[in-house]
Design a protein around this nucleic acid. Structure first.
Length: 420
RNA sequence: GGAGGGCUCGCAUAGUGGCCGAGUGCGGCGGUCUUGAAAACCGCUUCAGGUUUACCCCUGACGUGGGUUCGAAUCCCACGCCCUCCGCCA
Protein backbone atom coordinates (compact mmCIF):
# COMPACT_ATOMS: atom_id res chain seq x y z
CA UNK A 1 0.00 0.00 0.00
CA UNK A 2 1.14 3.49 -0.75
CA UNK A 3 0.20 6.66 1.09
CA UNK A 4 -2.47 8.58 -0.82
CA UNK A 5 -0.46 11.73 -0.18
CA UNK A 6 2.58 10.15 -1.76
CA UNK A 7 0.56 9.15 -4.79
CA UNK A 8 -0.93 12.63 -5.08
CA UNK A 9 2.55 14.16 -5.04
CA UNK A 10 4.21 11.55 -7.24
CA UNK A 11 1.66 10.70 -9.89
CA UNK A 12 4.16 9.97 -12.62
CA UNK A 13 6.46 7.90 -10.42
CA UNK A 14 3.56 5.67 -9.42
CA UNK A 15 2.30 5.43 -12.99
CA UNK A 16 5.76 4.32 -14.07
CA UNK A 17 6.00 1.74 -11.29
CA UNK A 18 2.70 0.18 -12.36
CA UNK A 19 3.92 0.09 -15.93
CA UNK A 20 7.26 -1.64 -15.29
CA UNK A 21 5.65 -4.09 -12.89
CA UNK A 22 2.95 -4.87 -15.38
CA UNK A 23 0.13 -4.19 -12.94
CA UNK A 24 -3.15 -2.48 -13.52
CA UNK A 25 -3.42 0.58 -11.31
CA UNK A 26 -5.46 3.65 -12.12
CA UNK A 27 -3.51 6.53 -10.64
CA UNK A 28 -5.88 9.27 -11.74
CA UNK A 29 -8.99 7.60 -10.36
CA UNK A 30 -7.21 6.98 -7.09
CA UNK A 31 -6.08 10.57 -6.70
CA UNK A 32 -9.56 11.86 -7.58
CA UNK A 33 -11.16 9.54 -5.05
CA UNK A 34 -8.60 10.61 -2.46
CA UNK A 35 -9.62 14.22 -2.98
CA UNK A 36 -13.26 13.30 -2.65
CA UNK A 37 -12.62 11.53 0.63
CA UNK A 38 -10.74 14.54 1.91
CA UNK A 39 -13.59 16.83 0.99
CA UNK A 40 -16.20 14.61 2.61
CA UNK A 41 -14.10 14.27 5.73
CA UNK A 42 -14.05 18.04 6.10
CA UNK A 43 -17.83 18.19 5.74
CA UNK A 44 -18.39 15.43 8.26
CA UNK A 45 -16.01 17.09 10.71
CA UNK A 46 -17.93 20.30 10.41
CA UNK A 47 -21.28 18.55 10.86
CA UNK A 48 -20.00 16.90 13.99
CA UNK A 49 -18.66 20.13 15.32
CA UNK A 50 -22.07 21.71 14.84
CA UNK A 51 -23.71 18.79 16.58
CA UNK A 52 -21.55 19.35 19.61
CA UNK A 53 -22.22 23.03 19.59
CA UNK A 54 -25.97 22.48 19.60
CA UNK A 55 -25.73 20.04 22.49
CA UNK A 56 -23.70 22.53 24.49
CA UNK A 57 -26.26 25.29 23.97
CA UNK A 58 -29.12 23.06 25.01
CA UNK A 59 -28.71 23.29 28.77
CA UNK A 60 -28.77 27.08 28.93
CA UNK A 61 -31.78 27.45 26.67
CA UNK A 62 -35.44 28.08 27.48
CA UNK A 63 -38.14 25.68 26.24
CA UNK A 64 -38.68 27.62 23.00
CA UNK A 65 -34.94 27.71 22.35
CA UNK A 66 -34.73 24.00 23.01
CA UNK A 67 -37.38 23.27 20.43
CA UNK A 68 -35.40 25.24 17.91
CA UNK A 69 -32.20 23.46 18.84
CA UNK A 70 -33.90 20.10 18.44
CA UNK A 71 -34.99 21.09 14.96
CA UNK A 72 -31.52 22.29 14.05
CA UNK A 73 -29.97 19.11 15.40
CA UNK A 74 -32.37 17.00 13.42
CA UNK A 75 -31.64 18.78 10.16
CA UNK A 76 -27.91 18.62 10.81
CA UNK A 77 -28.09 14.94 11.69
CA UNK A 78 -29.78 14.09 8.44
CA UNK A 79 -27.10 15.82 6.42
CA UNK A 80 -24.41 14.34 8.61
CA UNK A 81 -25.75 10.84 8.23
CA UNK A 82 -25.81 11.14 4.46
CA UNK A 83 -22.28 12.52 4.38
CA UNK A 84 -21.05 9.83 6.70
CA UNK A 85 -22.47 7.08 4.56
CA UNK A 86 -20.88 8.53 1.47
CA UNK A 87 -17.59 9.05 3.26
CA UNK A 88 -17.54 5.48 4.41
CA UNK A 89 -18.26 3.99 1.03
CA UNK A 90 -15.72 6.28 -0.62
CA UNK A 91 -13.14 5.36 1.97
CA UNK A 92 -13.72 1.67 1.43
CA UNK A 93 -13.44 2.16 -2.30
CA UNK A 94 -10.23 4.15 -1.86
CA UNK A 95 -8.71 1.52 0.36
CA UNK A 96 -9.52 -1.16 -2.20
CA UNK A 97 -7.64 0.87 -4.78
CA UNK A 98 -4.73 1.63 -2.48
CA UNK A 99 -4.32 -2.06 -1.66
CA UNK A 100 -3.54 -2.57 -5.32
CA UNK A 101 -1.02 0.24 -5.55
CA UNK A 102 2.43 -0.99 -6.59
CA UNK A 103 5.50 -0.27 -4.53
CA UNK A 104 8.12 1.76 -6.36
CA UNK A 105 10.81 -0.70 -7.51
CA UNK A 106 14.53 -0.26 -6.96
CA UNK A 107 16.14 1.70 -9.77
CA UNK A 108 18.73 -1.07 -10.16
CA UNK A 109 16.16 -3.77 -10.88
CA UNK A 110 16.15 -4.97 -14.48
CA UNK A 111 13.05 -3.74 -16.25
CA UNK A 112 11.20 -6.64 -17.79
CA UNK A 113 8.05 -8.67 -18.00
CA UNK A 114 8.95 -11.60 -15.84
CA UNK A 115 11.34 -14.31 -14.80
CA UNK A 116 13.04 -14.38 -18.21
CA UNK A 117 14.37 -10.88 -17.56
CA UNK A 118 16.01 -11.73 -14.26
CA UNK A 119 19.77 -11.31 -14.16
CA UNK A 120 22.29 -13.58 -12.45
CA UNK A 121 24.48 -11.36 -10.28
CA UNK A 122 26.71 -13.98 -8.72
CA UNK A 123 27.31 -17.64 -8.61
CA UNK A 124 28.84 -20.06 -6.12
CA UNK A 125 30.18 -23.53 -6.85
CA UNK A 126 30.08 -25.52 -10.02
CA UNK A 127 27.72 -28.34 -10.86
CA UNK A 128 29.30 -31.62 -10.07
CA UNK A 129 30.53 -33.98 -12.80
CA UNK A 130 29.14 -37.39 -11.96
CA UNK A 131 31.20 -40.47 -12.83
CA UNK A 132 27.99 -42.49 -12.74
CA UNK A 133 24.48 -41.81 -13.91
CA UNK A 134 22.82 -39.84 -11.11
CA UNK A 135 19.24 -40.53 -10.12
CA UNK A 136 16.68 -37.83 -9.75
CA UNK A 137 15.47 -37.31 -6.20
CA UNK A 138 12.28 -39.33 -6.72
CA UNK A 139 14.09 -42.44 -7.85
CA UNK A 140 16.78 -42.00 -5.26
CA UNK A 141 14.36 -41.51 -2.37
CA UNK A 142 12.20 -44.42 -3.42
CA UNK A 143 15.22 -46.65 -3.91
CA UNK A 144 16.28 -45.94 -0.35
CA UNK A 145 12.80 -46.17 1.08
CA UNK A 146 13.01 -42.52 2.08
CA UNK A 147 9.79 -41.37 0.52
CA UNK A 148 6.44 -42.76 -0.53
CA UNK A 149 4.61 -40.66 -3.06
CA UNK A 150 1.98 -43.08 -4.21
CA UNK A 151 0.57 -43.87 -0.81
CA UNK A 152 0.73 -40.24 0.28
CA UNK A 153 -1.50 -39.39 -2.66
CA UNK A 154 -4.09 -41.80 -1.38
CA UNK A 155 -4.52 -39.42 1.50
CA UNK A 156 -3.72 -35.98 0.20
CA UNK A 157 -4.16 -36.16 -3.55
CA UNK A 158 -1.97 -34.44 -6.08
CA UNK A 159 1.56 -33.25 -5.29
CA UNK A 160 1.51 -35.18 -2.02
CA UNK A 161 4.53 -36.84 -0.49
CA UNK A 162 5.50 -38.67 2.63
CA UNK A 163 9.10 -38.61 3.79
CA UNK A 164 10.35 -41.66 5.58
CA UNK A 165 13.19 -42.85 7.75
CA UNK A 166 16.49 -41.04 7.04
CA UNK A 167 14.78 -38.36 4.93
CA UNK A 168 12.72 -37.36 7.95
CA UNK A 169 15.87 -36.87 9.96
CA UNK A 170 17.58 -35.08 7.13
CA UNK A 171 14.70 -32.66 6.77
CA UNK A 172 14.75 -31.90 10.46
CA UNK A 173 18.51 -31.47 10.31
CA UNK A 174 18.15 -28.81 7.64
CA UNK A 175 15.69 -26.85 9.74
CA UNK A 176 17.76 -27.25 12.88
CA UNK A 177 20.77 -25.91 11.01
CA UNK A 178 18.80 -22.90 9.82
CA UNK A 179 17.47 -22.16 13.30
CA UNK A 180 20.94 -22.41 14.80
CA UNK A 181 22.49 -20.13 12.19
CA UNK A 182 19.77 -17.55 12.78
CA UNK A 183 19.85 -17.85 16.53
CA UNK A 184 23.56 -17.06 16.44
CA UNK A 185 22.67 -13.86 14.61
CA UNK A 186 20.19 -12.84 17.29
CA UNK A 187 17.07 -13.81 15.43
CA UNK A 188 14.16 -14.61 17.71
CA UNK A 189 12.76 -18.06 17.02
CA UNK A 190 9.01 -18.16 16.53
CA UNK A 191 6.86 -21.07 15.56
CA UNK A 192 3.96 -19.16 14.09
CA UNK A 193 0.29 -19.98 13.58
CA UNK A 194 -0.51 -21.16 10.09
CA UNK A 195 -4.22 -20.51 10.38
CA UNK A 196 -4.66 -16.94 9.27
CA UNK A 197 -7.57 -14.52 9.31
CA UNK A 198 -8.31 -12.50 6.24
CA UNK A 199 -6.81 -9.37 7.77
CA UNK A 200 -3.43 -11.01 8.28
CA UNK A 201 -3.27 -11.89 4.60
CA UNK A 202 -4.31 -8.41 3.55
CA UNK A 203 -1.62 -7.07 5.86
CA UNK A 204 1.10 -9.14 4.30
CA UNK A 205 -0.07 -8.30 0.80
CA UNK A 206 -1.32 -11.71 -0.29
CA UNK A 207 -4.90 -10.47 -0.39
CA UNK A 208 -6.50 -9.17 -2.48
CA UNK A 209 -4.74 -10.37 -5.57
CA UNK A 210 -3.49 -13.83 -4.73
CA UNK A 211 -6.68 -15.39 -3.40
CA UNK A 212 -6.43 -18.27 -5.87
CA UNK A 213 -3.12 -19.39 -4.42
CA UNK A 214 -4.36 -19.63 -0.83
CA UNK A 215 -6.31 -22.39 0.85
CA UNK A 216 -9.49 -21.12 2.48
CA UNK A 217 -11.53 -22.96 5.08
CA UNK A 218 -14.93 -21.54 4.38
CA UNK A 219 -16.71 -23.03 7.33
CA UNK A 220 -14.38 -21.33 9.78
CA UNK A 221 -13.55 -18.32 7.67
CA UNK A 222 -9.80 -18.86 7.97
CA UNK A 223 -7.00 -19.31 5.49
CA UNK A 224 -3.92 -21.53 5.55
CA UNK A 225 -0.81 -19.39 5.36
CA UNK A 226 1.70 -19.97 2.58
CA UNK A 227 4.62 -18.70 4.66
CA UNK A 228 5.54 -17.85 8.25
CA UNK A 229 5.72 -14.24 7.11
CA UNK A 230 1.92 -14.12 7.47
CA UNK A 231 2.06 -15.08 11.12
CA UNK A 232 4.96 -12.77 11.86
CA UNK A 233 3.40 -9.76 10.16
CA UNK A 234 0.12 -10.56 11.86
CA UNK A 235 1.76 -10.67 15.25
CA UNK A 236 3.40 -7.28 14.72
CA UNK A 237 0.35 -5.70 13.14
CA UNK A 238 -1.27 -2.56 14.50
CA UNK A 239 1.46 -2.03 17.06
CA UNK A 240 3.71 0.90 17.73
CA UNK A 241 7.19 -0.35 18.55
CA UNK A 242 9.65 1.61 20.64
CA UNK A 243 12.42 2.58 18.21
CA UNK A 244 14.99 1.36 20.69
CA UNK A 245 13.67 -2.15 20.20
CA UNK A 246 14.45 -2.07 16.50
CA UNK A 247 15.53 -3.89 14.51
CA UNK A 248 13.32 -6.86 15.25
CA UNK A 249 14.69 -10.07 13.76
CA UNK A 250 12.54 -13.17 13.61
CA UNK A 251 13.15 -16.70 12.46
CA UNK A 252 9.68 -18.02 11.78
CA UNK A 253 9.20 -21.74 11.37
CA UNK A 254 6.00 -23.17 10.00
CA UNK A 255 4.29 -25.54 7.68
CA UNK A 256 3.30 -23.68 4.52
CA UNK A 257 0.32 -24.32 2.29
CA UNK A 258 -0.01 -23.36 -1.36
CA UNK A 259 -2.70 -24.28 -3.84
CA UNK A 260 -0.40 -23.99 -6.88
CA UNK A 261 -3.37 -23.45 -9.17
CA UNK A 262 -1.39 -21.23 -11.48
CA UNK A 263 1.16 -23.95 -12.03
CA UNK A 264 -1.10 -26.89 -12.84
CA UNK A 265 0.91 -29.49 -14.69
CA UNK A 266 4.23 -27.86 -13.82
CA UNK A 267 6.81 -29.65 -11.69
CA UNK A 268 4.39 -32.41 -10.92
CA UNK A 269 7.11 -34.94 -10.28
CA UNK A 270 8.48 -35.38 -6.81
CA UNK A 271 9.24 -32.75 -4.23
CA UNK A 272 9.80 -29.72 -6.40
CA UNK A 273 6.42 -28.10 -6.11
CA UNK A 274 4.14 -29.35 -3.37
CA UNK A 275 1.04 -28.09 -1.60
CA UNK A 276 2.47 -28.45 1.87
CA UNK A 277 6.02 -27.83 2.96
CA UNK A 278 8.19 -26.77 5.87
CA UNK A 279 10.07 -23.52 5.99
CA UNK A 280 12.27 -21.43 8.22
CA UNK A 281 11.81 -17.81 7.22
CA UNK A 282 13.90 -14.78 8.09
CA UNK A 283 11.84 -11.70 8.81
CA UNK A 284 13.08 -8.26 9.83
CA UNK A 285 11.36 -5.08 10.94
CA UNK A 286 13.69 -2.08 10.84
CA UNK A 287 13.60 1.71 10.71
CA UNK A 288 12.12 3.52 7.77
CA UNK A 289 15.51 4.18 6.28
CA UNK A 290 16.42 3.04 2.79
CA UNK A 291 20.06 2.56 3.66
CA UNK A 292 19.31 0.52 6.72
CA UNK A 293 16.88 -1.76 4.93
CA UNK A 294 19.39 -2.12 2.10
CA UNK A 295 21.97 -3.35 4.61
CA UNK A 296 19.47 -5.81 6.02
CA UNK A 297 18.64 -7.02 2.56
CA UNK A 298 22.29 -7.79 1.93
CA UNK A 299 22.57 -9.52 5.26
CA UNK A 300 19.50 -11.71 4.87
CA UNK A 301 20.73 -12.72 1.46
CA UNK A 302 24.18 -13.48 2.78
CA UNK A 303 22.79 -15.69 5.53
CA UNK A 304 20.99 -17.86 3.01
CA UNK A 305 24.06 -18.02 0.80
CA UNK A 306 26.12 -19.03 3.81
CA UNK A 307 23.71 -21.87 4.54
CA UNK A 308 23.92 -23.06 0.94
CA UNK A 309 27.70 -22.89 0.93
CA UNK A 310 27.71 -24.94 4.10
CA UNK A 311 25.47 -27.46 2.39
CA UNK A 312 27.89 -27.44 -0.53
CA UNK A 313 25.14 -26.71 -3.02
CA UNK A 314 26.01 -24.75 -6.17
CA UNK A 315 23.72 -21.77 -6.52
CA UNK A 316 23.13 -18.49 -8.30
CA UNK A 317 21.86 -15.21 -6.92
CA UNK A 318 19.43 -13.51 -9.20
CA UNK A 319 18.36 -9.88 -9.43
CA UNK A 320 14.65 -10.12 -10.08
CA UNK A 321 13.15 -7.97 -12.78
CA UNK A 322 10.38 -5.48 -12.20
CA UNK A 323 7.85 -7.81 -13.79
CA UNK A 324 8.82 -10.74 -11.59
CA UNK A 325 9.11 -9.10 -8.20
CA UNK A 326 5.45 -8.56 -7.46
CA UNK A 327 3.31 -5.68 -6.37
CA UNK A 328 4.78 -4.89 -2.99
CA UNK A 329 8.47 -5.41 -3.50
CA UNK A 330 11.11 -2.75 -3.64
CA UNK A 331 13.81 -5.26 -4.40
CA UNK A 332 13.86 -9.01 -4.77
CA UNK A 333 16.71 -11.46 -5.11
CA UNK A 334 16.03 -15.11 -5.67
CA UNK A 335 18.61 -17.78 -5.01
CA UNK A 336 18.47 -20.67 -7.43
CA UNK A 337 20.08 -23.94 -6.45
CA UNK A 338 21.47 -26.54 -8.82
CA UNK A 339 19.35 -29.62 -9.53
CA UNK A 340 21.36 -32.25 -11.42
CA UNK A 341 18.24 -34.06 -12.63
CA UNK A 342 16.89 -30.90 -14.17
CA UNK A 343 20.26 -29.77 -15.45
CA UNK A 344 19.40 -26.31 -14.20
CA UNK A 345 19.13 -23.99 -11.21
CA UNK A 346 15.77 -23.72 -9.50
CA UNK A 347 14.49 -21.23 -6.98
CA UNK A 348 15.02 -22.27 -3.38
CA UNK A 349 15.12 -18.85 -1.70
CA UNK A 350 13.59 -15.45 -2.23
CA UNK A 351 14.81 -12.32 -0.49
CA UNK A 352 12.61 -9.24 -0.52
CA UNK A 353 12.66 -5.69 0.74
CA UNK A 354 9.23 -4.11 0.92
CA UNK A 355 10.14 -0.73 2.36
CA UNK A 356 7.00 0.49 4.17
CA UNK A 357 4.54 -1.01 1.70
CA UNK A 358 3.71 -3.97 3.92
CA UNK A 359 4.05 -2.12 7.23
CA UNK A 360 1.51 0.41 6.00
CA UNK A 361 -1.02 -2.33 5.28
CA UNK A 362 -0.44 -4.14 8.52
CA UNK A 363 -0.03 -1.04 10.67
CA UNK A 364 3.50 -1.88 11.82
CA UNK A 365 4.87 1.37 13.20
CA UNK A 366 7.53 2.56 15.56
CA UNK A 367 7.94 5.63 17.70
CA UNK A 368 11.21 7.35 17.03
CA UNK A 369 13.34 8.87 19.76
CA UNK A 370 11.90 12.28 18.86
CA UNK A 371 8.39 10.94 19.46
CA UNK A 372 7.39 10.82 15.80
CA UNK A 373 5.63 7.69 14.60
CA UNK A 374 6.74 6.09 11.36
CA UNK A 375 5.78 3.03 9.38
CA UNK A 376 8.63 0.53 9.60
CA UNK A 377 10.44 -1.25 6.80
CA UNK A 378 9.99 -5.00 6.50
CA UNK A 379 12.11 -7.64 4.79
CA UNK A 380 11.94 -11.38 4.42
CA UNK A 381 14.01 -14.20 3.05
CA UNK A 382 13.89 -17.96 3.05
CA UNK A 383 16.46 -19.61 5.28
CA UNK A 384 15.58 -23.22 4.48
CA UNK A 385 12.50 -24.56 2.71
CA UNK A 386 11.99 -28.28 2.45
CA UNK A 387 11.35 -30.63 0.79
CA UNK A 388 12.58 -28.70 -2.25
CA UNK A 389 15.97 -28.06 -0.70
CA UNK A 390 16.06 -31.62 0.55
CA UNK A 391 15.63 -32.78 -3.02
CA UNK A 392 18.54 -30.62 -4.13
CA UNK A 393 20.64 -31.92 -1.29
CA UNK A 394 20.17 -35.61 -2.03
CA UNK A 395 20.55 -35.15 -5.76
CA UNK A 396 23.78 -33.20 -5.46
CA UNK A 397 25.36 -35.39 -2.80
CA UNK A 398 24.29 -38.83 -3.97
CA UNK A 399 26.90 -41.50 -4.50
CA UNK A 400 27.08 -44.36 -6.98
CA UNK A 401 25.74 -46.88 -4.47
CA UNK A 402 22.69 -44.77 -3.67
CA UNK A 403 23.99 -43.43 -0.38
CA UNK A 404 24.13 -39.71 0.29
CA UNK A 405 27.17 -37.84 1.58
CA UNK A 406 26.29 -35.53 4.46
CA UNK A 407 27.87 -32.06 4.38
CA UNK A 408 29.90 -31.36 7.51
CA UNK A 409 27.51 -28.68 8.78
CA UNK A 410 24.64 -31.17 8.97
CA UNK A 411 26.50 -33.98 10.69
CA UNK A 412 26.01 -32.66 14.23
CA UNK A 413 22.26 -33.01 13.69
CA UNK A 414 22.60 -36.55 12.39
CA UNK A 415 24.56 -38.22 15.11
CA UNK A 416 27.83 -37.34 13.41
CA UNK A 417 27.19 -39.53 10.41
CA UNK A 418 29.02 -38.58 7.21
CA UNK A 419 27.01 -40.86 5.00
CA UNK A 420 23.35 -41.77 5.00
C1' G B 1 -21.43 -27.88 23.07
C1' G B 2 -23.62 -26.02 28.28
C1' A B 3 -23.39 -22.25 32.50
C1' G B 4 -21.45 -17.80 34.46
C1' G B 5 -18.18 -13.35 34.54
C1' G B 6 -15.66 -9.59 31.85
C1' C B 7 -13.74 -6.06 27.79
C1' U B 8 -11.90 2.11 29.75
C1' C B 9 -5.05 5.71 28.11
C1' G B 10 1.71 0.34 28.46
C1' C B 11 -0.29 -2.32 33.28
C1' A B 12 -3.95 -2.03 37.41
C1' U B 13 -8.24 0.59 38.17
C1' A B 14 -12.12 5.07 38.85
C1' G B 15 -16.00 6.65 36.23
C1' U B 16 -24.16 4.62 35.47
C1' G B 17 -26.58 10.65 30.63
C1' G B 18 -23.68 16.99 29.93
C1' C B 19 -18.47 19.45 34.60
C1' C B 20 -15.00 12.81 30.78
C1' G B 21 -10.63 12.00 25.63
C1' A B 22 -11.39 10.53 30.42
C1' G B 23 -9.33 10.80 37.33
C1' U B 24 -5.89 7.85 40.47
C1' G B 25 -1.77 4.34 41.24
C1' C B 26 2.22 1.78 38.84
C1' G B 27 5.47 1.91 34.78
C1' G B 28 8.06 5.04 31.07
C1' C B 29 10.43 9.81 29.57
C1' G B 30 12.58 14.69 30.92
C1' G B 31 14.13 17.90 34.93
C1' U B 32 15.58 19.58 40.17
C1' C B 33 18.68 17.62 44.00
C1' U B 34 23.25 14.21 44.29
C1' U B 35 30.35 12.66 43.36
C1' G B 36 27.01 8.80 41.20
C1' A B 37 22.60 6.18 42.30
C1' A B 38 18.25 5.68 45.22
C1' A B 39 14.52 8.51 47.61
C1' A B 40 11.83 13.00 47.30
C1' C B 41 9.79 16.85 44.37
C1' C B 42 8.19 19.11 39.42
C1' G B 43 6.60 18.34 34.42
C1' C B 44 5.30 15.20 30.31
C1' U B 45 3.23 10.49 28.86
C1' U B 46 -2.94 6.96 23.39
C1' C B 47 -3.87 6.73 18.30
C1' A B 48 -6.03 8.27 13.70
C1' G B 49 -8.00 11.92 10.00
C1' G B 50 -8.24 17.13 8.38
C1' U B 51 -5.66 21.95 8.32
C1' U B 52 -0.68 24.00 8.84
C1' U B 53 6.31 25.51 6.99
C1' A B 54 5.55 24.92 12.10
C1' C B 55 2.76 26.16 16.41
C1' C B 56 -2.30 26.27 16.95
C1' C B 57 -6.92 24.57 15.77
C1' C B 58 -11.01 21.10 14.24
C1' U B 59 -12.97 15.94 14.14
C1' G B 60 -13.20 10.74 15.56
C1' A B 61 -12.06 6.52 18.82
C1' C B 62 -13.68 3.91 26.21
C1' G B 63 -13.87 -4.38 22.20
C1' U B 64 -16.85 -3.81 17.12
C1' G B 65 -21.33 -2.30 14.66
C1' G B 66 -26.16 -0.27 15.14
C1' G B 67 -30.10 2.26 18.15
C1' U B 68 -32.37 5.85 21.90
C1' U B 69 -31.29 11.24 23.06
C1' C B 70 -30.37 18.16 21.99
C1' G B 71 -26.22 15.29 24.29
C1' A B 72 -23.68 8.30 25.43
C1' A B 73 -17.62 5.43 28.37
C1' U B 74 -22.43 5.63 30.97
C1' C B 75 -29.10 3.36 28.52
C1' C B 76 -30.88 -0.54 24.60
C1' C B 77 -29.79 -4.37 20.65
C1' A B 78 -26.49 -7.50 17.85
C1' C B 79 -21.74 -9.38 17.14
C1' G B 80 -16.52 -10.34 18.48
C1' C B 81 -12.88 -11.58 21.90
C1' C B 82 -11.03 -13.01 26.83
C1' C B 83 -11.54 -15.59 31.59
C1' U B 84 -13.75 -19.48 35.01
C1' C B 85 -16.43 -24.12 35.63
C1' C B 86 -18.69 -28.58 33.17
C1' G B 87 -18.40 -31.81 28.76
C1' C B 88 -15.20 -33.44 24.70
C1' C B 89 -10.16 -33.72 22.98
C1' A B 90 -4.02 -33.66 20.74
Amino acid sequence: MLDIKFIRDNVEVVRKAAEVKGVDFDVDTTVALGDKVRQLQTEVDEGQRLRREIAEQFKGSDPAGREELRARAKANDEQLKANRAELESSRTELRELLLRAPNIPWSGAPVGDGEADNVVIRQWGTPREFDFTPLDHVDLLEKRGWADFERARKTAGDRAYALKTQAVLLERALHSLALDVLMEQDFELVSVPVLAQREALVGTGFLPGHADEIYFLERDNVFLAGTAEVGLVGMASNEVIDARQLPKQFAGISTCFRREVGSAGRDVRGLLRVHQFEKVEQFVICRNDVEESARWHARLLDTSETILRGLELPHQVVECSTGDMGLGKFRMNDINTWFPSLDTYRETHSCSTLHDWQARRAGIRYKDTDGVIHFAHTLNNTAVATPRLLAALVENHQQADGTVAVPAVLRPYLGGRAIL
